[in-house]
């Protein structure tokens, strides 16, 4: 701070408090709704204070779900989301770190071509190639499977670039010393490069886990069997029912459960999260 201006400091706090309220209020309202009985929404004025049905609602959603919506119990959808998010995060990191290693530590024909092919994936999000990608996955028999949910999403240009950037900053002397001591490429990668990349891997993992968890369009395309619904896509089905049936309390319980895991990751791993976010965009 350059100088002391009490009024401006007061204004600063006011701005931030209003900002926090705007950011938090929709979630607060959803949480409050999830603690009420379904009858409390008939009066036309939504409740603003917690009700007594917190445990009932969450227990019901987690164990049985809303059968009228054709969606499985929430815990099952959350497990599917977890499997999908973890596979995507681990898969992206694994294949990107080895491709970055190949690009930085080896010289071979078509190296540049490989680099540009990976770069192109940045320009082809699922949204612009919906039908043909769906066809490929269908032809490979991967609809309604965990492989179909995760594998088509694990190519990653950003992760490859991040590792490439990081490998370029690793001192050349480390590799020369390793070679003098007789270490081959696999040993050097496993014993030296991998331990050095630990923080980068952790930061990237946080970002990619969130990326995997919030996927919506892809699971919507490749799953028709409720056994493979993820929570983020399942919620839409629940909400569609709520519009005709006043089951807002149950739908909002599912909404809170759907956002809880990634939000907790952001809050408790804030440093890694910020690092990952800022570095993947470079």
């Amino acid at each position: 701070m350059v100088e002391n201006r009490p009024f401006l400091t007061f204004l600063t706090h006011m701005v931030l408090i209003v900002g926090v309220v705007v950011v938090v209020f929709p979630v607060y309202l959803a949480f409050i709704a999830s603690t009420h009985g379904s009858g409390d929404f008939l009066s036309g004025v939504p409740p603003l204070l917690p009700g007594p049905h917190l445990i009932d609602n969450y227990y019901k959603m987690l164990t049985t779900g809303l059968s009228s919506a054709g969606a499985p119990p929430v815990w099952m959808m959350m497990m599917n989301s977890l499997v999908m998010a973890l596979t995507i995060a681990v898969g992206k990191i694994a294949i990107s770190i080895i491709s970055a290693y190949a690009i930085v530590y080896f010289k071979f024909p078509f190296r540049l071509l490989a680099f540009w092919a990976i770069f192109l994936t940045l320009m082809l999000p699922v949204e612009v190639r919906i039908i043909p990608t769906f066809k490929v996955v269908a032809d490979l028999g991967m609809l309604n499977s965990y492989a179909g949910l995760a594998i088509p999403l694990i190519a990653s240009a950003t992760a490859t670039f991040l590792f490439r950037q990081f490998f370029l900053t690793v001192p050349d002397e480390l590799m020369e010393a390793a070679r003098v001591d007789g270490a081959g490429p696999i040993k050097f990668f496993r014993d030296i490069l991998l331990p050095l990349s630990r923080t980068n891997i952790a930061a990237l993992f946080v970002i990619l886990f969130i990326y995997g968890w919030v996927q919506y369009l892809w699971p919507l395309l490749v799953t028709t069997d409720p056994k493979y619904y993820t929570i983020v896509m399942g919620i839409k089905r629940l909400a569609a029912v709520a519009d005709s049936d006043p089951l807002w309390n149950l739908v909002m319980a599912a909404v809170i459960l759907a956002m809880l895991p990634p939000v907790l990751v952001v809050i408790f791993m804030q440093r890694l999260f910020v690092k990952g976010l800022v570095e993947t965009e470079k």
């Binding site: 950011v23 979630v27 969130i210 968890w213 919030v214 996927q215 919506y216 983020v232 896509m233 919620i235 839409k236 909404v255 759907a258 956002m259 990634p262 939000v263 990751v265 952001v266 809050i267 804030q270 999260f273 910020v274 976010l277």
Partner: peptide, 10 residues
């Protein structure tokens, strides 16, 4: 910062 982790659909 936490709304970053909220899915667009949510």
């Amino acid at each position: 910062v936490w709304p970053y982790a909220v899915a667009p659909v949510v």
